[in-house]
Design a protein around this nucleic acid. Structure first.
Lengths: 242, 242
DNA sequence: GTGGCCTGATTGTCGGACAATCATACGATT
DNA sequence: AATCGTATGATTGTCCGACAATCAGGCCAC
């Protein structure tokens, strides 16, 4: 007989309640948009105190499974927003001391294939919003803040055009992590704005023509250019972000 | 003068408290492993009730910024575990009705470059654990559950060998999403086990020899093989997972 | 239909309470 | 010396009851 025992774990009530509600949402017994019963009613059903229910709700709320529609009291079931999930991921990576290089390397591997797929799968509206973002960057790049925002937005458009949620969500955290350094780089490297604008134009053109190879190629150059920009801006690649 | 007003939002106390603590953790003023003051003390400092503090703690806890070391009362500051973050991502994707095809397409784009990078960056211990997992799959693949587990573990080893946290974390949700269908596929396709074992062997060999091109190539075949397996197992690619 | 008013339902927050468990120190035992 | 038992205070998990602020909906006047 073994002398090893499994660790005995006593799960607190608030977590059990949260798990019970989460299970209902995951199994689609509770559908998106449906309103959750009031806290007192939940407390009655689970046989626990309202405080316990509330702690469980906070857990589900921060996980994105529940949300409060603005100007409404009742909690409604919701699917986690991609942006919110991505924010958690980038926060985790930042806390784990990811380096610029790691982010850049991931972009190097991820973005060119995404451009390729986007060029194949893009719909007409995709091209329109892609062209719109590209033009907005070209016109409003004087303000660093806007330039950074439009740069990220361009990648998001490419992500949507892939028609693949997994790829779209995978790149989101990278954009979050890129942002602070991008701000510095755009500010310090004079030619950055025009190079980004040119790259975006090429990529949009290739995507519009469904030229997957060209889209991939220009995107690869675009990402390589970021690295050169970092070097010109004297941003060390092997130091942690933020 | 504009008649448009910004939406007025009143942030509840528990979220303000959570944000205040999160800010301290993100800014590294509170370091990993450090113990948080007791709830009553926090309540005193923030000038709110303990219930309010507790709701805030639940939010931070589920975000992975705080954790309770097993068998300990006090809350300690922690960095979100990659596994936990990945679980949130895969849960979000599953709720957004992601399809097998999307997951497979993402794997197609992500894994071959990862194998390539792993072959370049792998350390000696990486090779050892890679070989160990590979061998474990070869020996213990009779039990479907174990076969599935070792298949995912192999990818995780590759991820670690890339020495890139971003890439490693990016693939984790994919493995979660792959798991249920993989279980079905391995069960229904007789030759799946031997083909996976063979592919793993090739990839490990190439990685050990630092032959990046070969590693990438074999990984690409490995992923393509999954798709063939799905087709043989009559798993529709365009239906949602779980 | 619009706007005002009333009423009940619900949430956010509060204060206090208590048992169970953890942390620690202090002896007692081997 | 190392281990064990016990005592004490700190801390958490959970409970109860309470109240103001706000939301939802109905009713009524215009």
């Amino acid at each position: 007989m073994s002398v090893a025992f499994d660790q005995i774990l006593l799960v607190p009530g608030y977590r059990k309640v949260a798990a019970a509600i989460a299970e209902r949402i995951l199994s689609r017994a509770l559908r998106e948009g449906e309103r959750l019963p009031p806290e007192t009613e939940l407390a009655r059903q689970f046989g626990v105190n309202r405080s316990t229910v509330r702690e469980a709700l906070r857990e589900l709320e921060s996980g994105g499974l529940l949300e409060r529609r603005p100007g409404s009291k009742r909690m409604t079931v919701s699917r986690p927003r991609h942006r919110a999930v991505a924010k958690d991921v980038s926060r985790a990576l930042a806390l784990h001391d990811v380096t610029f290089f790691e982010v850049w390397e991931a972009l190097t591997q991820l973005e060119p294939p995404m451009a390729e797929i986007a060029a194949r799968n893009r719909t007409k509206p995709d091209i329109e919003s892609l062209a719109a973002v590209c033009q907005r960057f070209a016109e409003e790049n004087a303000d660093t803040e806007k330039a950074v925002h439009h740069t990220a937005e361009f990648f998001r458009c490419i992500g949507r055009a892939t028609r693949n949620q997994v790829l779209g969500l995978a790149q989101e955290p990278l954009l979050d992590l890129l942002e602070p350094s991008l701000r510095v780089m755009i500010d310090k490297v004079p030619q950055a704005r025009s190079r980004i604008a040119a790259a975006q134009r090429r990529i949009v053109e290739a995507t519009a023509k469904r030229d997957a190879e060209a889209a991939r190629g220009w995107m690869a150059r675009h990402i390589r250019d970021f690295r050169r920009g970092y070097e010109l801006a004297d941003i060390a690649l092997d130091c942690r972000i933020i």
